[in-house]
């Protein structure tokens, strides 16, 4: 089985510092890491390979330094790595990113399942995985927390919902975006790291993919960022104190009061 996993390199936000003047992330000196949710996608891709055989191809789009993220993925058990790096890709929003990734996956041709993390820790959009499935015109299951069964033709997976989970059977190929409940990512092995260090990483540019120039990079990105701001904190609510019976009555009165039309 051929398994594709898409990853993103993001700033390490575990020790994040905020500039008190601008309220923005201080990026200087912040290390780049694999998006934490993608670590679960890598682990699940490798576990699936270990069960079904085949290989795992890891893909990432970004500047050349994304190579370190791809090497880390190789050290964790991925077999091949593809870097999509080109000035023409710069400024891509989730639409252009998922289009470009989908075109790269098309070039791979032979694929059965595509894993993504549920979202990236920097943008938090959760759109790229579903975007890939739309561009490839194949099914998707998001928020996957368990793979019950998978073979070359179909898969039965658990999709986490707020109330519980759905059990979904889907034909393959399929895009699965995973949540952290799905597994515990492994620690890389020393031999894996040594192999990953020497491994060849395929570098594909726009001209290597059969892309329409209008759909990639900044020009291919319909998203307009109008303004970025920190929402003002909610003003503290009211606290009712006293015996439960009395407090409940007070609370209900207060809510009724609030709901009255104000003229």
């Amino acid at each position: 089985m051929n398994i594709v996993v898409c990853i993103k390199q993001v700033p390490d936000t575990t020790n994040v510092r905020i500039d008190p003047n601008t309220n923005t992330l201080i990026r200087e000196g912040v290390e780049s890491v694999i998006n934490p949710f993608d670590m679960y996608a890598i682990e699940e891709a490798v576990r699936t390979k270990e069960k079904t055989g085949g290989k795992v191809i890891v893909i990432s789009m970004g500047p050349p330094q994304v190579e370190t993220a791809l090497r880390e993925a190789l050290s964790l058990g991925c077999d091949e790595a593809i870097l999509l790096s080109d000035r023409a890709f710069a400024g891509s929003d989730t639409w252009a990113t998922s289009y470009t990734l989908a075109m790269a996956i098309k070039k791979i041709k032979d694929f059965n399942v595509i894993f993504c993390g549920k979202q990236a820790s920097d943008g938090d959009t959760a759109q790229v995985g579903p975007g890939i499935s739309a561009h490839l015109d194949i099914p998707q299951v998001t928020y996957v927390k368990k793979i019950e069964k998978i073979d070359e033709k179909s898969a039965i997976v658990y999709r986490m919902t707020e109330e519980g989970y759905d059990v979904i059977e889907t034909p393959l190929p399929v895009v699965l975006t995973v949540v952290k409940e799905i597994n515990t990512p492994r620690i890389p092995s020393l031999k894996g790291k040594m192999t990953a260090k020497k491994a060849q990483i395929l570098a594909w540019k726009a001209q290597d993919l059969n892309v329409n120039d209008k759909f990639i990079g900044l020009n291919g990105s319909p998203t307009q960022v109008v303004k970025i701001f920190t929402p003002s904190p909610r003003s503290g609510g009211e606290i009712f104190q006293g015996e439960t019976d009395e407090v409940v009555v007070k609370l209900i009165d207060r809510i009724k009061d609030e709901l009255k039309p104000k003229f």
Binding site: R186, I187, P188, S189, L190, K191, G192, M194
Partner: peptide, 20 residues
């Protein structure tokens, strides 16, 4: 088990005996 899977038990053992 984690140390074993990470290959670190073999760091002082020759490659021909499975170390690094």
């Amino acid at each position: 088990k984690i140390i074993a899977e990470s290959d670190l038990f073999g760091v002082f053992i020759e490659e021909k005996y499975g170390g690094t």
